[in-house]
Design a protein around this nucleic acid. Sequence first.
DNA 1: ATGAAAGCGCTAACAT
DNA 2: ATGTTAGCGCTTTCAT
Lengths: 333, 333
Amino acid sequence: MAKTVDEIASELEISITTVRLVLSGKARQYRISERTEKRIRDYTDEHGYALNYTARSLKLQRTDTLGLIIPRLSNPFFAALAEKLEIRCRNAGLQLMVSCCHNDPDTQIHLIDTFKQRNVDGLFIVPSDKNSLKHCQTRFENRTLVLDRDFKAKLPLVMSNNESSGEQLTHKLLTAITGKPNIVFLIGNPQLPTIAARLKGFKQALKNHGIKRSQVTLLESPSNRDEDGKQLMLQWLAEGRGVPDILLTSSLPVFEGALSAVRQQLRQIPESMTLGTFDDHTMLDFLPNRLYAARQNEDDLVQAALTGMSALLNDQPAPEDYIADIEIVERWE
Amino acid sequence: MAKTVDEIASELEISITTVRLVLSGKARQYRISERTEKRIRDYTDEHGYALNYTARSLKLQRTDTLGLIIPRLSNPFFAALAEKLEIRCRNAGLQLMVSCCHNDPDTQIHLIDTFKQRNVDGLFIVPSDKNSLKHCQTRFENRTLVLDRDFKAKLPLVMSNNESSGEQLTHKLLTAITGKPNIVFLIGNPQLPTIAARLKGFKQALKNHGIKRSQVTLLESPSNRDEDGKQLMLQWLAEGRGVPDILLTSSLPVFEGALSAVRQQLRQIPESMTLGTFDDHTMLDFLPNRLYAARQNEDDLVQAALTGMSALLNDQPAPEDYIADIEIVERWE
DNA sequence: ATGAAAGCGCTAACAT
DNA sequence: ATGTTAGCGCTTTCAT
C-alpha cells in the first residue's frame, strides 16, 4: 500500500514526470500516450496511490491547512462556528485544525506555537487576551484573522455587533414588561471585549428606558462558564430578595448555570421571570418563560472569516473588519 | 522570522550538528562549549526558531498527529468527546485533527483519504456505515480505532454499553410510573448499531415489566437530528391521542426536536409526561418534568480510546474492545 | 566536541 | 511526448 510516485515510475520503468502527469490528470494536456496512461491507471487501481501531503507541503511551503483556536467546543456557539468553518474550508480544499485553549493564555500561546511549527497557512483565533495576539503577530504576521473578540489589535477582525446586541436585547426585555421591573444581569468575565460591549449596550438601553439604578443588579464573575452562572445566581438567591422580574445573562453557559441554580434552590423555575440571554439554542424552548435570545449569525461570520483569510493567503490587502448583525429570537408563544 | 537550522548554522559559521544539539537541549550531553551554546541561544532569542514539523515528519515518517472523524460538533456528546480527546492528545504530545462527516458516507470516505494523505499516525472514527470501515482498513490497517458504533468490523472498539443503557433507562422510567403508562419511543436512525442496541435494551425492560405491546408506540426516522425528533413528535400529536405518559428519545438531538414540537403545538410542555433520553445535558434542568437521562462516561471513553491508540501506534497487540458503563441521571426533585 | 552527507517524497525548471 | 535534477528542512549515521 501507499506507493510513491518514484516507486510507480521505476516499477513501470517510465519517468517520474510521466507518472505525475497522469496522476494529476494532465495526461491529455501533455499528450501522454494512451497505452502509458492505462498502464499507470491499472497500476494505481491495483496498488493504490495517496499523494503524500507532507512531502508536497515541504516543497511548496504551503500545507493547505488552517488553524482555529477557540475557547472550548462545549460552548455551542463555538462548536457551531467550528463546524461551519470546517465545511467552508473543506469546500475550498483546505483542512481545518481545531484546538481549544480553555481561555488559558498559556495554552493559547502553546497552540499558536504548535500551529506555527506545523506550518498551517493561516490562523483563525478567538483570543483570550491581548498578549496572545502579539504572539500571533510575530508568528503569523499577516496570516491571522481574529474572531469574536476585539482586543484592539491591528489584525483583521470578524465578530458580531455586541453593543447593539446588548441594547436590542435589553430593549426587547424592557418593552415586554410593564411597571418597574427588578433586573438582574449575570456577567461572566467582563474583561472580555465581547462581554464589555454587551454590558455597554445594556446600560444604554436602560438609559433610553429611564430605568433607575436601584432597579438593577449587576453580578460579575471572572469567567464565562456554567459554574460561574451557578455561583452568581446562588449568590443572588442567598440575598433573599426572591427571583427578579428580568434575568439576563452574558452568555449561554452562564444562563445554563443560573437556571440550574434556580431549579436546585427553588425546585422549579418561576414563570414570572422574563429571561434574556446572548446566544440562542433549541433547548431554550424547554422553558415556559417569556424569553429572548440574541442570536449571532454564524453563517455570515464564517463566510466573512474565510473570505478574509483567502485574501490574506493571496497576499491581497488585509480585509476590512467585519461586524455581523445579530437577531433577537423570541422563544415564547 | 522562522530561521532554519541551516541558516542559523551558516550565519554563525558553525555546523548544523552543533546547532541541533543545542536546540534539542543536548548541549551538555555532547559537551558543546558554553560559549558556542550562548551564541546560539542569543541568536535564537533574537530571531526566533520554530522547528519545521513538515520536514521532520517527512524524515521520520510520523506526524505526531491523529485524526478524529465524528458526525457533527453540534451534537454535545461528540463535542465533549472531541474536546476531551484533544486535551489528552495534547498531553501526550499529539495534535488532534477533528472533522465532521455529517453522517454522509461519501464525506466520510473523503475524510479518511484526506487524513491518509496528510499522514496522520492514527485515526479515531465514529463510522457512518460498515463500508467506510473497510476503507479504513485498507488505508490505515491497524491504526484505526472505532468509537461509539459497533459495525462488527474487526477493528478495536471503544463505546458505551448501549443495550444495558436502554434497559436501565427504561427500567427507571417504568419504576417511576404507576398504572398502565402509555409509552412513546422516538427513534432516530435504527440502522445505527448504537440506536439498535438501545432499542433492544428498551424492549427487554418492557418484557421484564410485563408491559403490553398496545401501550407502546415506536416511531422511527432515517436520521438522528433535531428535525427528525420534531417530525416524529408532530406525527404523533397529529394522531390526536394527546401526550404520552412516558416519552423516550434515542438521542439528545431527537429529544430537542421532539420537545420543541410539543411546545410549538401545545404552547407548553405538559408536566404529566415523564421523560427519558440518551445523553445528558445541563439544559435538561430547564424542564419541570420528571426526567431521566442516560449519561455516557466521556472521560472513560476518551481514556480508553487514547490508551488503545497508543498501543496501536507502538505496534503492540490490538487492544481489547472497551465497553463503558453508563449512568442514569435523575433530573428532577 | 564538531562536521558532512544522505535521503524522506514531492514539485518545478530545465532538458531532450 | 518523456526524462533528469535540485532542493524544501529535518534527522541520522558516519567521520573526524
